[in-house]
């Protein structure tokens, strides 16, 4: 049951992430990306990581993508005013893409099918257990991450107030 749901949702993820690339209109692209993130949320739920699922839902779908959409709607990119890329850039892009494909195929061929990761504690994704892990063994890295994020926030605000400093 879970496996078939996984394959169904995984197919959807791939289809929608391809649509992100192939959509002509950037706003449609972002909307497909939102749907892709939603399928990721379903993946997290299938892995019994409820907290991660709901945080992915709130932060990525609810906040970050709203800002993406916000900027794209303001920019109002149309096909008319999009700068046309020269043939040289296109050829280089195709070659680079093929190189990446070859590298990826080679890398995939080199690895054997890895052992499936067995969770020691299947309820790790629940809020209580996750919190105990984060504030127990992983206290220092967690706090360092939060300081990093705080400094990034302060930096962003400082950049917008350049003229007054």
């Amino acid at each position: 049951m879970t496996t078939s749901i996984f394959y169904f949702v995984a197919t959807l993820s791939i289809i929608f992430s391809l649509m992100v690339i192939f959509a002509k209109n950037p706003v449609h692209s972002v909307l497909y990306l939102i749907v892709t993130f939603f399928t990721f949320t379903v993946h997290y739920i299938l892995l019994n990581a409820q907290f991660l699922a709901v945080v992915n839902f709130i932060v990525y779908m609810g906040a970050i993508m709203v800002l993406f959409l916000f900027v794209l709607m303001l920019l109002n990119l149309n096909k008319d005013n999009e700068p046309l890329k020269s043939t040289l850039v296109k050829v280089v892009g195709v070659i680079a893409g093929c190189c990446l494909l070859v590298t990826l195929a080679g890398a995939l061929k080199a690895v054997a099918i890895s052992d499936p990761v067995v969770l020691r504690n299947p309820n790790l994704g629940l809020v209580k257990n996750l919190g105990k892990e984060l504030f127990g063994p992983f206290m220092l890295p967690f706090e360092l991450c939060s300081i990093l994020l705080l400094s990034a926030m302060v930096g962003a605000i400082l950049l917008t107030k350049k003229e007054k400093v």
Partner: peptide
């Protein structure tokens, strides 16, 4: 067990 966050997620989705 994340009921509040679910509500919060739905609210943040409402703007779409």
């Amino acid at each position: 067990n994340v009921g509040i966050l679910y509500i919060f997620g739905v609210v943040s989705l409402g703007v779409y």
